[in-house]
Amino acid sequence: MGEVIMKNTMILAIESSCDETAAAIIRNGHEIVSNVVASQIESHKRFGGVVPEIASRHHVEQITMVIEEALAQADVKPADLAAVAVTEGPGLVGALLIGINAAKAFAFAHNLPIVGVHHIAGHIYANALVQPMVFPLLALVVSGGHTELVYMKEHGSFEVIGETRDDAAGEAYDKVARVLNLPYPGGPRIDQLAHEGEEAVTFPRVWLEEDSYDFSFSGLKSAVINYKHNMDQRGGEISPTAVAKGFQESVVEVLTAKTLRAARAYQVKQVIAAGGVAANKGLRASLEAVFAKEGIAFFVPPLKLCTDNAAMIGAAATPMYEAGVRGNLMMNGRPGMELKSWV
């Protein structure tokens, strides 16, 4: 019998790349000991979107309280920690800086190593908090700022095989929601409306080149705007449910088809969806159906791990920490940070 090694790697993770101030304690990379998120959504609602300066101001107000809450809920002291992890990028630079500087000050005060995490790696690793990741793996990352297909042959190896050439899927959702006069954030409302309707307005699917895994959603967005415009000019009434349903069908069909084609081509053992739009019921149902038929394991994290949170940053940081990846006190926010392999 082999010796059983009891690991106890406890990481404090901090995330502030957009409009959530978040901190979490993660044990051994997969166990959520605490997960605290202070959302600013109510504040940004009045502007119809996230205002960077307002986001930064809220982060400074919340940051120490959120970290303290994460430590208190976990009943963890700084001395129990192995490292501090923080989102280094991409994101809003002024927002990133708050989490990063708080992480650096905390790490310095307690002589802890610091690990800088890519936000998208975090979204992907949210899955490690639900079930073990099995490689090779394909991740569909869909959020307000990202639409990417990422191939992983092992832990820490990321190959972006497809990405959006213009709008992120979530961005298209928010813009279409504005056309339909839905309150911010519009994505979840469109998902809801799409399920309420029977009829769907037919909108185009943008496939790009035959062999491409890239996406484009700006044409679809324009098609929705033109449709509304034409109806307005003719004095006709549009059906918000039919528009929402038609728009969602177009997005979901393209995302599903490209993910399936990539999963086959790369012969992956697991497909995971990640990011805020992965919470979309229509997308979830479509991917689940397709991969059940295909016989490939498919997972989506629960809603609270799809939207921005620090638990996912801790999950991604743990294998990095164990592989010896370290940041230092000169760490800066990297708004356009690329997803690079760390193995």
Partner: peptide, 9 residues
């Protein structure tokens, strides 16, 4: 942020 985090922790 630096001052606040140091002072708090």
């Amino acid at each position: 942020t630096l001052a606040k985090t140091l002072a708090w922790t």
